[in-house]
Design a binder for these strands. Sequence first.
DNA 1: ACATCTATATGTTATTCACAGTAATATGTT
DNA 2: AACATATTACTGTGAATAACATATAGATGT
Lengths: 127, 127
Amino acid sequence: MEPKRRQQYRHLPAFVLLTLAEKSVHGSAIHSALIERFGLYKPDTGAIYRCLQQLEQDGEVDSEWDTSGKGPAKKNYRLTSAGWEKLEQWRQDIEMRLANLQYFLEMYHSLMELQVDKKREHDVISQ
Amino acid sequence: MEPKRRQQYRHLPAFVLLTLAEKSVHGSAIHSALIERFGLYKPDTGAIYRCLQQLEQDGEVDSEWDTSGKGPAKKNYRLTSAGWEKLEQWRQDIEMRLANLQYFLEMYHSLMELQVDKKREHDVISQ
DNA sequence: ACATCTATATGTTATTCACAGTAATATGTT
DNA sequence: AACATATTACTGTGAATAACATATAGATGT
């Protein structure tokens, strides 16, 4: 039995801020939105609430309780102007990471072609 | 004074394996190669050596000492077949992450256009 | 009254890796 | 030979991230 390795998806605050940029909502709705949009990305609810607390502490979001609708009270979060700025920083950060990952894939594919070529040569020789 | 937030660059084993896929080399050479190729990505040397130890423990690389050349002995690492398989897993993983990051950027840009439109409307109304 | 659902929150642990430093060997300099 | 310097490998520590598990509390249905 392989020891199960935990998968970290990362950039959670970026995706939380992005979701809030579209619409001010409460934690559970952010969770649903992320699951809906990123099929493979199932963030932990605990992580989201703690993320929101941190973002509020850093002044990137503010919140107010909504006791109107059905069910238990919801804490609606809204981007502050600091939050919009932070989102822009995340955009830059993510563009850089994206470039690195693209480079990884390019290099991976060119290496694999080389491997195939080597194999082909080998096959020709051994005919 | 803002508390300095550490930047994590992540996916280090993927990039180490990729470097070794191209050519079997020692830790310090991997460090140089990564710095050369990823201008913004300056991985920690400690992280690289620990990563290599972990990879060896997991059977994804093996190593042998090279005492020929100049300077101190070098520990050359080489991908095993398990390492090649792991690299393929990383490819899949990274393609997924890439898709998520691309989605972030798409959504970010479309939100920003909306913001501009709103501002334009506002400007027109207040004329 | 009780179970269930929804939303929020906390406890604990694993993973990742940055920052700082140590050690050992080879080589160049005086 | 003595010393400084460069190169390579490795370790100590702790911060950041977030996964897994559990708890709480109000609203709602039966």
